[in-house]
Simulated assay, not measured.
Amino acid sequence: MWLKFLIFAGLGYMVYKALAGPGPEKNRPRMDRQDVRQIDDVMVQDPVCKVYFPKREGVAAKVDGQLMYFCSEECMKKYLNQK
């Protein structure tokens, strides 16, 4: 009697899990290291063209003792020529 109950209970649970689908933790998108780096990156504004870009992708130049970031070599050259 108990054996039949345990078998039916086990089968019922397996059918329930099959119909219910994955739990909430499996529906969440998985983040790899590249995604984490993108989230942690800081956005800065180019002083010439006013475009925002990730700081790590910018071109750095030290101007008057201050480190500045530009979206491209072209914008950096424009800024340095204006000074």
Rank of each mutant, 00 (worst) to 15 (best):
N81S: 15
D32C: 03
A9C: 02
D64R: 13
K26D: 06
M43F: 09
Q38R: 14
W2N: 14
E25M: 13
L67V: 14
C49D: 05
M14G: 12
P54A: 06
Y79T: 00
A20F: 03
G10W: 07
R37F: 15
D35M: 03
K83M: 12
E73D: 15
L11C: 06
P47E: 06
P29M: 03
G21K: 11
L6Y: 12
L3G: 07
E25K: 15
P54D: 04
D32S: 08
A9W: 01
M76E: 11
G58H: 00
Y52C: 02
Y16V: 08
P47L: 05
C71S: 00
Y79K: 04
L6T: 09
M68F: 07
E25T: 10
F5R: 09
F70V: 05
K77P: 02
D46G: 04
F70K: 08
G21S: 08
L80M: 13
V44G: 04
E25H: 13
N27S: 08
V36K: 00
G58T: 09
E74P: 00
I7H: 01
K17I: 08
N81H: 11
P24H: 11
P29W: 10
E57N: 02
A18F: 09
F8Q: 11
V51K: 15
K55P: 01
L11V: 14
L6N: 02
P54K: 02
R56H: 14
E73F: 07
L11M: 10
Q45A: 12
P24F: 13
V59A: 09
D32N: 00
R33F: 15
G23W: 11
G10L: 07
G21V: 10
F5H: 10
V48D: 02
K83E: 00
G65L: 01
L19G: 05
L6A: 11
V44S: 03
Y79R: 06
L11Y: 00
K83I: 10
F53P: 07
P24M: 09
